[in-house]
């Protein structure tokens, strides 16, 4: 058997495609990005090595829109942590209690997660349409004409307008993860708490939520890094406009590379996104330690 397991040809054949793809499309390109970020390069002429100049410009320049984009990115993350996740937990705890229509609600709440962001984005563009959109129509119906806005076109409202669909779309995802987590907790624990006279709310806080910690941590990592990476929805809704008012790092990266041909500056933003995603994931893992983790890590 060992001889069969050490078959060199099989090992080579089985690993070759995966290793080639991984190296060629993921590992090497990331190092390339790191190198490009040190160049002043428009993609046509030869790049000039400028060291950390691109990073310096990003963080100090007032016109690049980068500082604004970072603020927006952090706002999205805060929204994910303090609105999206608590609401998802609220839904999951209630549904997992075992109530009428439980499966139906879980199934329906999960639908937005599956739909293409382009579809959802296009629908929200119509919902926000200043003349015929649902939002303004409802406001007019209520006689609140003065509250109507060009939601995606005004600097003061655009960030809220992109915020809502982004938060909305993934509530169902976190809810499902938490719901599955609660369902996998031994139901005897819940029954024991019930016999001891605990209400369901108490059971949630003293038993279910503490036991759900590993799942909550996954949700936290996904929520925060997802916010850091978010691109699709903002690209579809506003592409970062008007005047950087809804810019996030990924849309800024995209514009820099493919609209302005600033390959160096764009790559610096790409590296920034990778570093901050990794750092945050590690930080969250460190801060919220889960017992018995050394084995699985």
């Amino acid at each position: 058997m060992n001889k069969v397991r050490k078959n060199k040809l099989a090992i080579f054949v089985f690993l070759l495609p995966a290793v080639l793809l991984f190296a060629g499309i993921i590992i090497i390109p990331i190092f390339c990005s790191g190198y490009y970020s040190l160049l002043d390069w428009d993609g046509i002429t030869e790049g000039i090595f400028v060291g950390l100049e691109n990073y310096k410009t990003l963080f100090t320049s007032k016109t690049s829109g980068f500082s604004k984009s970072v603020v927006h990115m952090l706002m999205l993350a805060v929204g994910a942590v303090f609105i999206q996740l608590p609401f998802a937990l609220f839904l999951a705890l209630g549904l997992a209690k075992g109530m009428k229509g439980e499966r139906f609600f879980v199934t329906v709440f999960f639908i937005p997660v599956l739909l293409s962001t382009v579809v959802i984005g296009q629908l929200w563009i119509k919902i926000y349409n200043p003349d015929y959109g649902v939002v303004n129509s409802v406001l007019r119906m209520l006689g609140l004409d003065s509250w109507c806005h060009t939601w995606l076109g005004e600097k003061s409202t655009v960030m809220w307008a992109v915020f809502i669909p982004i938060i909305w779309q993934y509530v169902g995802y976190h809810m499902l993860l938490m719901y599955a987590g609660i369902k996998s907790i031994n139901s005897e624990l819940r029954e024991a708490a019930y016999i001891d006279g605990a209400t369901y709310v108490q059971t949630c806080f003293y038993i279910l939520i503490p036991l759900l910690k590993p799942v909550l941590r996954v949700c936290l990592i996904f929520g925060v890094t997802g916010a850091f990476k978010s691109f699709d929805m903002i690209y579809v809704l506003t592409n970062g406009g008007p005047a950087h008012a809804s810019e996030v790092p990924s849309t800024l990266m995209f514009t820099n590379i493919f609209m302005k041909n600033k390959y160096g500056a764009g790559s610096a933003i790409a590296i920034f996104i990778i570093v901050i995603c990794f750092a945050t994931a590690i930080l969250i893992k460190k801060v919220f330690k889960v017992e018995g983790e050394e084995k699985t890590a």
Binding site: I25, P29, S33, T225, F231, I257, I273, I274, C277
Partner: peptide, 13 residues
């Protein structure tokens, strides 16, 4: 590869 965002590879690829 689970944590790597696709942004990182966009331009080089």
């Amino acid at each position: 590869g689970l944590t790597l965002p696709i942004h990182a590879a966009l331009l080089p690829v």
